[in-house]
Structures are given as structure tokens and as C-alpha cells.
Simulated scan of single mutants.
Amino acid sequence: MRRRTAAAFAILSAALLAAAPPARLHYRIDPAASNVDARVAFLGLSSKTASFPAIVGKLSLPDAAASAPKSAITLDVTLDARKLEAGDTRTLKRLKGEDFFDVEHYPTVHFSGETLRMTAVRTAEVSGQLTVRGVTRPETLHVTFNQPLAENRGSQPIQLTGTMRIDRRAYGMTGLSMVVGRKVNITIKTRMVPL
């Protein structure tokens, strides 16, 4: 009888462990150590860059994400477009205006990452949804970590650089089409601290 009880307990324990959700690691963006830049060609000879210093967000991913081919994650990044910065006042006014970010009606830019696919020990692709000016489209963020993700067990900050290339016209930014390039190169540099 005692053996049957022990066997039943072992089976039940194994079933509960198998049914338990995988452990997850949780982080938040450190706004003081994070920034986003958006660069676009200008007159075909140079470029203009806008910076978004006001950034908040969080990251949640499985503990075993670094060893899985693909993992479901939660990456939420929100930029305050009203606080964007540019190299000169004329460019800043245009970027905040109706032809570009239209910050009066759309004060934030948001990226929601849903899937992480490791491409090497320090690089990955994050697939998700980008929302700009009320338009939401699928985009991919190409990420490089400062150290192999597998070495981080959730107790140390994560530093990463992410890049994304989008078509501004797809988000309703059609102004100055003969002067400003169509493709925008976005770079995010961020430090994420454990929760």
C-alpha cells in the first residue's frame, strides 16, 4: 500500500511539474540609460536624425528563451513623441507637425514585441507590432545583447541595441516626399533592469 501511495505521489508530482508554466524573467526599461534615434535621408546627400529620450517599457521572456528556437515574449516600448528632439527648430517643428508624427493627435509611438527568435548567442529577432500615428503594422526588431542571453538568469541588467527599418509612408508620414527619404532607420539603445 505504501509503495502504491509513493508511486501515485510521484506520478502526480511529475504531472504537476509538466503542467506548470515555464519560469519567466521580467525587466523594465531604465529610462535614464535608454534612447531611440530615427534617421532618414535628406536631399539624397545627407540625413536628418530625431531622438526620443522619453522612453518607458518592460520585457518578459521565458528563462529558457536563449536555448529555444522561438519563444513567446512580451516587449512593450512606448516613446513620448511630444518630447522628441531634432538638430534644429525648423526640423523639430516639422517632425511634430501634421505631415509627420502629428504629436497633438498621436502623442506616443509604441512597439509591442511578441516573438523572440535567437539568431546567435548574442543576437535575435523580435517580431511584433509597431504603432505610429494610429497605424499598426507588423515589424521586426533586430537585437544585439551586450552578453549572451543564456548567461543572464534574471538577476543582472540587460543591455541591448535594436535596429528596425520602416517605410514612413506606410504610417501616413507623406510630407516632403521629394526631399525626405522614404525609409527610416530606427535604433534603440536600452538598459533593462530586473523587476
Rank of each mutant, 00 (worst) to 15 (best):
S34Q: 07
D167C: 01
S60W: 13
A10K: 08
N152K: 05
T190E: 02
M1V: 00
A124N: 00
A6T: 01
A18R: 03
A10G: 07
V135F: 06
L79E: 07
R168N: 02
L17G: 02
T115C: 06
G87C: 03
T131F: 11
F145C: 11
D102G: 05
A41W: 14
R28V: 12
K48E: 14
R165C: 06
M164T: 02
R90F: 12
R28K: 14
S127M: 08
I73R: 06
L17Q: 05
V121E: 12
V103N: 04
K83A: 09
L84G: 14
I73Y: 11
K83M: 11
K93A: 15
R28N: 11
K96Y: 00
H142I: 05
V126W: 07
L12P: 13
A86E: 14
F101L: 13
P194M: 03
R191T: 10
S67Y: 00
P31L: 09
I186M: 04
T174K: 07
R168A: 07
S34D: 04
A14P: 00
A150Y: 07
T5I: 14
L141W: 04
L116S: 10
T161R: 11
T91W: 15
N152R: 10
G57S: 11
I158R: 10
A8C: 12
L45N: 08
A68T: 01
I188D: 08
V184W: 01
R2T: 10
L195G: 02
A120V: 07
S51L: 03
R82W: 02
T144L: 05
A64E: 13
L195H: 06
S112M: 10
F111A: 01
L25F: 04
L16K: 08
A50Q: 08
A23F: 01
T115G: 01
T174G: 12
T161I: 10
L17S: 01
F100K: 13
T136L: 12
I166D: 05
